[in-house]
Design a protein around this nucleic acid. Structure first.
Lengths: 153, 153
DNA sequence: GCTTGACCTTACAACGGTGGGAAGCTCCAT
DNA sequence: ATGGAGCTTCCCACCGTTGTAAGGTCAAGC
């Protein structure tokens, strides 16, 4: 099976399959004499595993752990559960943070006339806030990395 | 006021202030003869505006719009409100997606013994799912970009 | 056998936003 | 005059993914 077919069968783009190989998330596969990568069902199986984990928001590093556990027949399910649950916490914290931002913005928007008048509490809030806390005590900021439009799929 | 003082007063790091200048999010400021950037209260005001908008998850491009509206005294508050509300929708969609992931994972974890036995529905789910949909119909994936740990302060 | 087009290969750059560091200059206090 | 803190520019790294360029290969049709 060529990389293109493996990509279709697994849901991971050929581009990303090669990338995952270079960062050693997956092992190099066999090649034809011409240098084409060849994938068998087991390889595709692992790629589907990766696709699913990415869909659930696991980072590449976390996938490394999960793949190791998957391949280890003697792993304790407790190990897997621990990773999953800590990931759940992270997901929920991010979700809460996004909702907090949303609530703040909604509150500001609710007090905005939304007509032609220039008075706007949103702008005023942005412009008139107190100086931020000192760096060491500020909360982490969820910026564009968190909010960037998801492009792949 | 030097860049360092402006950074402290605004909550935007000196590094990022320079970066925002290069991408023309903010205009170049005056310099001393030696080339040091000088910031006045108005500049710091704008930087605080930016800091606040970043905290609320606005992208640099969105900040460009907001800053333009802020500087335009005749802007309609409706414009600002529209940007804010569309941003609210985006935030909520992201939050929902994260919660969906979390729910799926929790469901899987709930059915995992979490003991020494190797059987684990989490891993099994990852390994045995159906082949993903064709590329064109797949949902956007919220990957590491969305979930990356927030590092800045 | 030759052409065409789809597919493969590698290598490099870009995105967004931020941090890190080097090499050199300037300012201020001692 | 010297030291150190702070400034300058410049380049590099991260993450995950996509795009593109320049070339090799395969299979089909003529």
């Amino acid at each position: 099976m060529n990389i293109g077919q493996a990509a279709k069968a697994s849901g991971v783009s050929a581009k990303m399959i090669r990338y995952y190989e270079t960062i050693e998330l997956i092992a190099p596969v066999h090649r034809t004499e011409a240098g084409y990568r060849i994938y068998d069902d087991q390889d595709v199986h692992a790629l589907r595993f990766i696709s699913r984990a990415r869909d659930l928001g696991f980072s590449v590093d976390q996938m490394r752990e999960l793949l190791a556990l998957w391949r280890d027949r003697d792993r304790a399910s407790a190990d897997v559960k621990a990773i999953a649950l800590s990931h759940v916490e992270m997901l929920e914290e991010k979700a809460r943070a996004l909702q907090q931002m949303s609530a703040t913005l909604k509150h500001l928007a609710a007090n905005c006339h939304g007509d032609g008048r220039p008075d706007c509490p949103i702008i005023e809030d942005f412009a008139n806030i107190q100086p931020p806390m000192a760096k060491s005590t500020r909360k982490p900021r969820f910026g564009a990395a968190v909010l960037a439009p998801a492009k792949s799929g």
